[in-house]
Design a protein around this nucleic acid. Structure first.
Lengths: 109, 109
DNA sequence: TGGGATTACTACGACAGACGAAGTACGACT
DNA sequence: AGTCGTACTTCGTCTGTCGTAGTAATCCCA
């Protein structure tokens, strides 16, 4: 299991990735993260929703409601153009970060 | 330049890496980090010294003084057995983290 | 019909790590 | 005498994560 402290700074990026193709909502995203990570990373609810607020504040996602016939009303999110741009930036940053850390963290010792 | 939020949680590991072979002191370590990262990561002084304190507290490093004939007295650090053990653990964790994040962060978009 | 599980959040507060600003102290060079 | 480089220390702030708890609706099974 991965501690979120390690992924800190990439939770936003992970969420944006899951919104690239389809709009979605909190619970679904958290399940997808769990699933796609092979159960190795499970995002905490509070972490997830605070990430949504941050992303909204920065204009990287938009929220809206859908007409639901039943169930508690969900807040849906969709990625914005700025969000896509930010995602790409973070991807480039990640490539660099990975490269730099690998100079200090040797998996073969 | 890399945002430190990403490396957060790996600063300690980076420092331990530099102490694996030789004992060293703050300023030298910060210069080595800059050098080895190809100037892509420059650790802040306060971050560095707070990392030393954390590592000391956890018993991963030991501090001592050397007889210096001139200059301001330096605090030297050397890695402990527990420190080596922790370093190896973090290396394994890094391999996993890298794997998981790469499922969400696509460099080829 | 009753009670727990699951879905879908929200609010509050604590904590750890990073970092900016500033200060101290010494030596070397100019 | 002043600046630059070395080698730290202290203090306070900020951000992101996360524990705890609460709300509210539906679903499932006995």
């Amino acid at each position: 299991m991965i501690s979120s402290d390690v992924i800190r700074g990439y939770n936003d990026t992970i969420i944006l990735y899951l919104l690239l193709e389809n709009e979605s909502y909190g619970y679904e995203i958290s399940k997808k993260i769990k699933e796609l990570s092979g159960e190795k990373y499970i995002i905490k609810e509070t972490t997830l929703y605070s990430a949504f607020n941050r992303l909204l504040k920065n204009g990287y996602i938009e929220s809206f409601y859908k007409e639901e016939t039943f169930g508690k009303r969900r807040t849906y999110y969709r990625i914005t153009g700025e969000g896509r741009h930010y995602y790409k930036e973070k991807c480039r940053e990640w490539a660099l970060t990975k490269e730099v850390i690998s100079r200090f963290v040797k998996e073969d010792l």
